[in-house]
């Protein structure tokens, strides 16, 4: 069966994911070592240790994301967190930075290393380099590849691949987008946040809801229409004679129906995005996807059911897996 890798932004979400059938959960510490460094989220050192013990007791693995890029002169925090993850019993760490990968390979050789999507390794040469140089055993592929491209990659590499199947979409090759820093001074790679809530303001203006990021209006939504979060790349902009979602629509990914094709393409693990979401969301999405991977493994048809109401913009897309770019 394909491995289902599920988000846990809090210990409660971790419990919800495991009880709902997650084979593995991924989570991070409550600091800048983690690309989901949001207010009220993440794990203290003690919560990480007890969470991992609880997950292991129920047969689930825990992957610890240390997937930001250490600041020059600040590496010590990332190194300490690697040691904390190993001491807590993590089954693997998810890393993006080459220096941190090298440090982990040297000082924590027994802990599995996964390559984060933030590293944006999107071709066999890059992946093979990470595997040879740092002993990476799994790579999380960026959300820019088609199923055929994933199959082509898998034919030329020896490490496992993990792909996103559900949740918020980051449309760039991750790790290379600094859009958010132009409006807020903060970006995923440096601060673990994209379009951070600290720079978001909503205002009811007449019948409309205006969503601003760093003072720029990103969306204006009429009454009774779904209101997306003002993520910069999903904003409504004017460019030349075009006004609209110039980069990407405010929709999220749902590739459930592509699971059989992804299995055929040689993918090992399926990842659900959403460490910033509630335990209600995590429980519902994980249950749905666990039923789907079981059906695929048993050769049964995919169970029906849609999760669109949980999605941003309340609409879903198959993303780049079957994408035509603008």
């Amino acid at each position: 069966m394909m491995e289902l890798v599920c988000p846990a932004g809090t210990p409660a979400a971790m419990r919800a994911a495991v009880e709902a059938g997650a084979h593995a959960v991924y989570c991070g510490f409550a600091d800048e070592t983690n690309a989901r460094n949001f207010p009220g989220l993440n794990f203290s050192t003690e919560e990480m240790a007890s969470g991992i013990a609880g997950a292991h007791a129920r047969g689930a693995k825990v992957l610890v994301a240390l997937n930001t890029f250490p600041r020059a002169g600040g590496e010590e925090l990332w190194h300490r967190r690697l040691a904390d993850a190993e001491a807590a019993g993590a089954d693997a760490v998810i890393l993006a930075d080459m220096g941190l990968l090298a440090h982990a390979a040297e000082h924590h050789p027994r802990m599995r290393r996964h390559l984060s999507v933030q590293a944006a390794a999107a071709n066999p040469d890059a992946i093979n380099f990470y595997a040879e140089a740092f002993g990476v055993q799994r790579v999380v592929l960026p959300r820019v590849l088609t199923v055929d491209e994933i199959a082509a990659i898998n034919r030329e590499i020896d490490v496992e691949t993990e792909v996103f199947v559900f949740g918020g979409l980051c449309v760039m090759a991750e790790g290379r987008c600094s859009l958010s820093s132009y409006a807020t001074g903060k970006s995923p790679n440096m601060n673990g946040v994209c379009s951070p809530a600290s720079h978001v303001a909503y205002a009811e203006e007449g019948q409309d809801l205006a969503a601003r990021l760093g003072g720029f209006t990103i969306h204006r939504t009429p009454k009774n229409q779904p209101a997306p979060y003002p993520t910069l790349c999903k904003g409504c902009f004017s460019s030349g004679d075009q006004t609209g979602h110039v980069f990407e629509d405010p929709v999220s990914l749902d590739a459930k129906h592509l699971i059989p094709a992804l299995a055929k393409a040689g993918v090992t693990a399926l990842k659900i995005e959403g460490r910033q979401r509630s335990r209600a969301y995590v429980g519902e999405v994980v249950r749905t996807f666990r039923a789907a991977v079981e059906a695929v493994a048993a050769g049964r048809p995919m169970p029906e059911g849609a999760l669109a109401r949980l999605s941003e913009g309340q609409a879903a897309t198959a993303g780049a897996y079957a994408k035509t770019w603008r």
Binding site: A227, Q276, R277, S278, Y281, E312, Q314
Partner: peptide, 10 residues
């Protein structure tokens, strides 16, 4: 209920 979903649906 999920907080984000309640927010997206307004």
């Amino acid at each position: 209920y999920d907080g984000d979903a309640l927010f997206f649906s307004r």
